[in-house]
Amino acid sequence: MSSAQAAMPETAAALFEAKTVVARDTALSTLEAAASTDPASAYAAGAGEFFTALELLASGLHRHGFESPRSFMLPLMRLPVPENPNPEPLTYEQFRAILVAFRNRLEKSAATLGSVPANADIGIVIDLTQVGIDLNEDGTIAPDESIAAIMASLSRGVAPDDAAPALTFRFDRADGYWLQGYAEFLMAQADFWLAHDFRSTFDGSFHMLFPRAKLPLQDILVPPAGDMGSSIFSSEWRIADFISLVHLVNWPVVEPERRQAARRHLLEMIRLSREDWKAIRAETDNDREWLPGPQQKGENPLTGLEVGEQQVAAWLATLTMAEDLLEGRVLLPHFRITGKGINMKRFFDEPKPFDLVLSITGPAIAPYLESGTILTSDDFDQIQSEFGGGGFLTFALWFN
């Protein structure tokens, strides 16, 4: 491959090893100023912007006493935010503002990473135990706030306690596509929420997430501290509030362009994943790979998995399947409807109020039903079988 040489700038090391928010932000500003002329600076700046997007979300949640439900059903709500004994009150408008700030920083990160030339020779070595975000708004980046510790928390479902073992990778051009794709994925989630008015859900159930933030039903429904349990299904009151949350997901559309944008973000994520694998397969080295190709042998220290040709081929087939669904070329099946499927392109592009329960039971998806080619369980099972003991979900979270 031809390449535009881009040595790792010293400021990038300062960014990824900073122990205070001030030092981190100073280094990030320097990299952003150099991004237009230096590919490595743009690459590092885009990564820094991604991490600070997570920090904006985490700090906003912490400020109002967020307690993570640690549930895969609420993916944006799984950050291991430390306990805040003196939370500030939270309003619906403030919560939307937190999501907007998070989403807009992700958009900035995606644009910066997208400015890196496809043939740039990138090689930035990062120890994930050294780079982190300020989860508790104290201005410092502690060992238990490192990306390695946060990832360990997300995988174990418990809050980080001790520093994680060393986890060092050399991030190259392919990994930039990977991170940019994850920014698009998270923007899709944020835009879907923001497309709707979810005030009734907030007022009626969000005290399960912010039990001391003066939400409307706090005084009636939140039990004394110590009686709440740590997960959605760990106590009767949390189960009750989760049922309320599901029941109250009947959201009018207030910003239809955001629901349309969510589909575009997902399509861009698919495009970037293809670019990622194109770049990975062209690599001839095997140097601390974040996401190795089949030619880069050895178990990955993060996942303990080795990537083979069958997994890559199956993943590329998965991308085609997802793209066909989002473009309406293939229809999504519904368990109680035969002969017709859901046109997901129209679901996003012709938004109607989103009712979760009625979508599951059928009435809410009736406007999007069409005749045509319907995805079958056999289509997916054939792909899933190629991922072996590691399981499709593990590879999917890693591959993006």
Rank of each mutant, 00 (worst) to 15 (best):
V131H: 14
I126R: 05
I220T: 09
A174Q: 14
D161N: 07
V131N: 01
S109E: 07
T112R: 14
A142G: 11
P165V: 03
R199D: 08
A188L: 07
F198R: 10
I133R: 05
F171I: 15
F202W: 15
P223T: 07
R105G: 05
A148S: 09
D138F: 05
A101R: 06
L217M: 10
A120P: 12
D197Y: 04
I150Y: 06
Q130M: 09
F102L: 08
P165D: 10
P165A: 03
P211H: 02
F169L: 08
F210T: 02
A110C: 02
I126E: 02
R103L: 01
F198G: 06
D172R: 00
F192C: 05
L209W: 03
A101D: 11
M151E: 09
A164P: 05
L209D: 03
D172G: 12
P223F: 11
P143D: 03
I122E: 10
R105P: 01
E137M: 07
K108A: 13
R170Q: 12
D138Y: 04
I124K: 00
M151D: 06
T112F: 10
W178Q: 08
L167V: 00
T201Y: 12
S115C: 05
K108P: 01
G229A: 05
D144Y: 01
I126Q: 12
R105Q: 15
S153E: 15
L194G: 04
T112D: 13
Q189K: 05
S146P: 14
H207E: 12
A159F: 14
L106W: 02
E145L: 02
K214Q: 09
I122N: 06
A195C: 13
P143C: 09
D144W: 02
A111W: 10
F198H: 15
K214G: 10
P117K: 12
E145T: 04
A225P: 06
K108V: 14
G226T: 06
D175F: 07
G123L: 02
P143V: 03
L113T: 11
D127S: 03
A118D: 14
W193D: 00
D203K: 09
Q218H: 08
A195R: 12
M228V: 05
S115L: 11
T129C: 13
A111T: 14
I122K: 00
V222H: 07
R105W: 07
A148K: 02
G123K: 03
D121H: 10
S109Y: 04
T140R: 15
K108S: 15
V125C: 06
Q218T: 13
L186A: 08
A188G: 13
A166F: 01
H207R: 03
E145S: 04
G176C: 00
D127N: 02
L128F: 15
F185Q: 04
K214E: 14
L113M: 10
P211S: 00
L221T: 13
